[in-house]
Amino acid sequence: MKTLIVVVFAVAAALWLLNTSLLVTPPSDTAKILAHRGIHQVFQQEGVENDTCTAQRIEPPRHAYLENTIASMQAAMDSGAEVVELDIHLTPDRQFAVFHDWTLDCRTDGKGVTEQTPMTTLKTLDIGYGYTADGGKTFPFRGRAQGQMPTLTEVFTALPHGRFLINFKSDRREEGATLAVLLRAHPEWRKSVFGVYGGSAPTQETLRLVPGLRGYDRQSTLACLGRYVAYGWTSIVPEACHNTLVVVPANYAPFLWGWPDRFAARMKDAGSEVILLGRYGGGDFTSGIDSADDLTLVPKNFAGYVWTNRAETISPLLGKRMAATNSQANRE
Rank of each mutant, 00 (worst) to 15 (best):
G226H: 12
N301M: 03
T244S: 14
T157L: 01
H242E: 13
S220N: 13
E49K: 13
V210T: 10
I127T: 05
R218F: 09
W233V: 09
G112V: 14
E175T: 03
R279S: 13
P316V: 03
I289V: 13
N167K: 12
V84Y: 01
D78Y: 00
A230C: 05
L295V: 07
H100V: 04
D87K: 06
T69R: 09
F141V: 00
A329V: 14
V155G: 01
K191W: 03
T30F: 12
V237S: 09
L245M: 06
L225A: 00
Y280L: 04
A201Q: 08
V113I: 15
G281S: 12
N301I: 03
F156N: 03
Q44D: 14
V306Y: 02
A185E: 15
S170W: 08
L159M: 04
Y216N: 08
Y228T: 09
K32F: 01
S315M: 12
E205S: 04
R190P: 11
I166V: 13
I88E: 03
T54Y: 06
G130N: 05
V248K: 00
N50M: 10
A158K: 13
G136R: 10
A158G: 04
P260S: 15
F194G: 03
D294E: 07
L256A: 11
P61C: 03
G304A: 08
G271R: 10
S28L: 08
S315V: 06
Q44E: 10
A303V: 07
E174W: 08
G226E: 10
L222P: 01
N326T: 12
P118F: 11
A223S: 13
A97H: 02
N167E: 15
G80D: 02
Y305S: 02
A133Y: 04
E115Y: 12
G215H: 13
Q44L: 00
P211N: 05
D290P: 05
T132E: 06
V193C: 08
G130Y: 01
E312H: 08
P260G: 07
V11Q: 09
Q74K: 14
D29C: 01
S287R: 14
G162E: 09
G176N: 00
A75T: 07
G281C: 06
G282N: 13
I5C: 11
D217E: 10
S72I: 07
G304H: 00
D293S: 09
A81G: 13
Y252W: 12
L209D: 06
T117L: 06
R218T: 13
G112P: 10
P202V: 02
T3V: 12
L22K: 10
A145S: 09
L277M: 15
L165M: 10
G128C: 01
K300Q: 15
Q116S: 15
N19W: 06
W102R: 14
V6W: 12
V210S: 09
T30L: 11
K191R: 14
T25M: 07
G271V: 04
E154I: 05
G143M: 09
N251E: 14
A64P: 00
T313H: 10
L34K: 05
V48W: 07
R190G: 04
L207N: 04
T52R: 08
A145G: 01
P238N: 04
A230N: 08
P60N: 01
T103N: 14
Y197C: 02
A265L: 08
D87Q: 06
V84L: 02
A264T: 07
L165I: 01
L125W: 11
Y252S: 07
R163T: 11
S235D: 07
R142W: 03
W102F: 07
P249F: 02
A253S: 03
S192V: 07
M267Y: 02
L17E: 04
V246W: 05
